[in-house]
Simulated scan of single mutants.
Amino acid sequence: MKLLTLDEAVELLQVSKPTLYRFTSQRKIPFIKIGGSIRFNEVKLIQWLEEKTVEPGESYGREAI
């Protein structure tokens, strides 16, 4: 298992640091807290990304009323 730092996870996910901090504080993304440091399991992050993939023709989010 490879653990990524915050900066490495930001690069992998292509999001800003504030966005990644928000995802962790809202428990929207898998992470590991070691002491005062946040680490990310690379495999779990990739799985999380794959789960968020919207395929062509799929609806996502709230449906129009």
Rank of each mutant, 00 (worst) to 15 (best):
E11N: 09
K44P: 00
I29S: 12
S25N: 09
T5H: 07
V43H: 15
I46Y: 01
S25E: 08
L20E: 04
S25R: 14
I34M: 10
K52F: 01
E55I: 00
G35R: 12
L45A: 06
T53L: 13
V54N: 11
S37Q: 11
V10Q: 03
L6G: 15
E11C: 15
S16I: 13
F23I: 09
L20V: 05
L3S: 06
R62Y: 00
I38M: 06
E58L: 11
K33H: 05
V15I: 08
G36L: 06
P30M: 10
M1T: 07
L3G: 01
I38A: 03
R62L: 08
E50L: 08
G57A: 05
E8G: 02
A9N: 15
V10A: 07
S37A: 11
K33M: 08
E42F: 02
L4I: 13
G61A: 12
Q26N: 11
G57H: 01
R39T: 01
A9V: 02
R22C: 12
R27V: 13
I38G: 00
K52M: 09
L13N: 09
L13P: 15
T53K: 10
L4Q: 04
E63Y: 03
E42N: 04
L3E: 01
K17W: 10
G61M: 11
T53Y: 07
K28M: 10
R39H: 09
A64H: 02
E58Y: 04
F31Q: 09
K2W: 05
